[in-house]
């Protein structure tokens, strides 16, 4: 099977701080890839480079930014526009063939139909995050980059989100997401990338990471802490 996304030797630094060092990996169509690592490991930088929001200093991404749907960590939405207006704006900017239909489809998929006419500023954090993800999906991209998509969602909303993301993956969309919770990665991801100090220190299945950490653990969070050295606190 040909790679849906190929990342080759991506490097990025901010001043004297090296955020990414020669990061390379490939994903297959429909694969769900979780990016894990401690704070400052380079997860957000990696996803924003894939989305074209930042330029890498060097390296190559095989998919152009317009073909990557991106939901940044902080919802990038207009508080004074309604849910439907936000979706329609980005549908038009993404040059979707039928923006109205795309908006209706997204509202249905995200369960936000009843909130379509409400201004974003009046929605809860969880609902804003759903709109944030919906905008990432509106252009029906083959690759989806979600930066901590379940942050500020309650457990029920989180479950709905992952069901939704899993459905997208089953339909062939490649999903790369960063997360605070290794448990989410263990439950939903096909593959785990561990970033540490800007380098990929592990690339494999969740089970593979548990085995690599010593095999005595059955939960990924403990395994990750053990893998990262244990003395740096909880992973982010």
């Amino acid at each position: 099977m040909s790679a849906a996304l190929r990342v080759e030797a991506l490097s990025k630094s901010y001043g004297g701080v090296q955020a990414l060092r020669e990061v390379s990996f490939e994903t297959e169509p429909g694969e769900l890839v979780a990016v894990l690592g401690p704070n400052g490991a380079g997860k957000t930088t990696l996803l924003s480079i894939l989305a074209g929001a930042q330029q890498a200093d060097s390296g190559h991404v095989s998919v152009p930014p317009r073909e990557v749907g991106w939901a940044p960590q902080q919802p990038a939405l207009y508080a004074r526009l309604t849910v439907a207006e936000n979706l329609e704006l980005f549908a038009r900017l993404e040059r979707v063939a039928d923006p109205s239909q795309a908006v209706a489809a997204m509202l249905a998929q995200t369960g936000l139909e009843a909130r379509a006419a409400e201004q974003l500023g009046r929605l809860s954090g969880g609902n804003r995050q759903r709109v944030n993800v919906a905008i990432a999906l509106i252009g029906d991209p083959p690759v989806l980059a979600l930066d901590e998509p379940s942050a500020s969602l309650d457990p029920a909303q989180r479950e709905r989100l992952w069901e939704f993301v899993a459905a997208l993956a089953r339909a062939g969309t490649t999903v790369i997401f960063s997360t605070h919770g290794p448990g989410e990665a263990q439950r939903h991801a096909d593959r785990v990338l561990v970033l540490d100090g800007g380098r990929v220190t592990f690339d494999g299945t969740p089970g593979g990471l548990i085995a690599r950490a010593g095999g005595g653990e059955d939960d990924l969070e403990r395994a990750l802490v053990s893998f990262l050295g244990g003395d740096r606190g909880a992973p982010a």
Binding site: A51, A53, P65, A76, L77, Y78, L93
Partner: peptide, 13 residues
Amino acid sequence: EENALARLIRGLV
């Protein structure tokens, strides 16, 4: 302020 700049300039505008 709305964090929309990065989303816009990543190829949309």
